[in-house]
């Protein structure tokens, strides 16, 4: 199934969640944060979706007020792929975890927490993954600065 084939199925099954095709990427769907994690649980377990594999999850910073999470799902059974994007408020991004659905989401979300400062509620072990434990700030935010950081001269 392609994203535009998923769209009506998801809309009828989750009427309270907003879905739309991503205008920037024909292979992606945008959805509201209220659908996490129920939509993902359905996508993993429903026979017609059968997304056994969370390929990756990552984030994109869109200052000044938006932070976007990106999830890529893949089905070995049907050999189809679906990218889901969720917008979060940049000043207080919080979203339920997917670590109970796919085990690799555990470290993916720790990395997103470390580098973007997104809080995953219900995560079993939300610690920094890359940076030292006592690091301050989230380096992949676009307004990040650090005393060690020398700007590249123009």
């Amino acid at each position: 199934m392609s994203p535009d084939e998923f769209l009506p199925t998801l809309k009828t099954r989750f009427p309270e969640v907003e879905f739309q095709l991503d205008p920037l990427n024909p292979r992606a769907l945008k959805m509201s944060a209220s659908g996490v994690p129920e939509v993902f649980a359905w996508l993993r377990d429903a026979p017609e979706a059968a997304m056994e594999f969370l390929e990756f999850s990552t984030a994109v910073d869109h200052p000044p007020d938006r932070l976007e999470l990106v999830y890529s799902l893949y089905s070995y059974t049907h050999r189809h792929r679906l990218v889901l994007k969720v917008d979060l408020p940049r000043h207080a991004p919080t979203i339920p975890t997917l670590a109970h659905l796919w085990q690799n989401a555990d470290w993916n979300e720790r990395e997103i927490y470390d580098l973007f400062g997104v809080f995953f509620s219900g995560h079993p072990d939300l610690r920094r993954l890359m940076m030292p434990e006592d690091w301050e700030g989230h380096p992949l935010r676009k307004d990040y600065s650090h005393p060690n950081l020398t700007p590249r001269p123009d």
């Binding site: 940076m131 060690n148 020398t150």
Partner: peptide
């Protein structure tokens, strides 16, 4: 990583 690198010891 000298320029724009925050995580590397210089």
């Amino acid at each position: 990583f000298y320029h724009d690198g925050y995580s590397v010891l210089k």
